[in-house]
Amino acid sequence: MSRCDFKIVLLGSEHVGKTSLVLRFVNCRFNHGIPYQNTIGAAFCAKTLQSNGKDFTVGIWDTAGSERYEAMTRMYYRGAHAAIVCYEPGSLASWTRTRYWLQELKTVEENCKIYLCGTKRDLLDSGAVTRAVDEDIVATYCQELHGHFLTSSKTGESVDELFQKIVDDCAADLHLMRAVEDQRLQLQKEELAYKSKNKEYCLC
């Protein structure tokens, strides 16, 4: 599956659950009986999703969360359609790093849609972990972003919703782009037709 319609980058510090999120998304739903071809790793995953009755293939790029590779992550989100910035509500450190990426994305990739994703919701719900990140702060950040989801890769809660929303948004964007492009093509065609007509006249 070399062709992808959308590119989604997963960002987040180490052990925040990026890979689990991808695995959950890729292996659980939408199986369609077709085994996923890339069983070796979860670094790059491609999956076909439906939006508005159309199929879209999304390529999900996992990134290394280790701080030592932080400088290189910019390469990953080059030309990305969407980015999922993950944080762990129970860990303040992961949240602080999130702010770095948000900053980066806004400056480097303006067209990239950013989704905030709090992971390990099951731990939060069961009370094993106490919330360390203030909800209000997250809410204020989210105002500028395209969405915020609290997911649990363990239970699969709102994982699919997250990706579905991304695809829908991207598809809507694409649709708009297509419409513009179509109009441009139409104009081009008309121009061509006009030219060829003119040619006929010229021959006389």
């Binding site: 890979t19 070796i40 670094a43 280790s66």
Partner: peptide, 20 residues
């Protein structure tokens, strides 16, 4: 090459394993 590297890491390898 990366496919071999992933096999080297052991499945399922995430980006955290792949890059190093």
């Amino acid at each position: 090459c990366c496919a071999h590297v992933m096999r080297l890491c052991g499945a399922p390898a995430s980006a955290d394993d792949l890059l190093p």
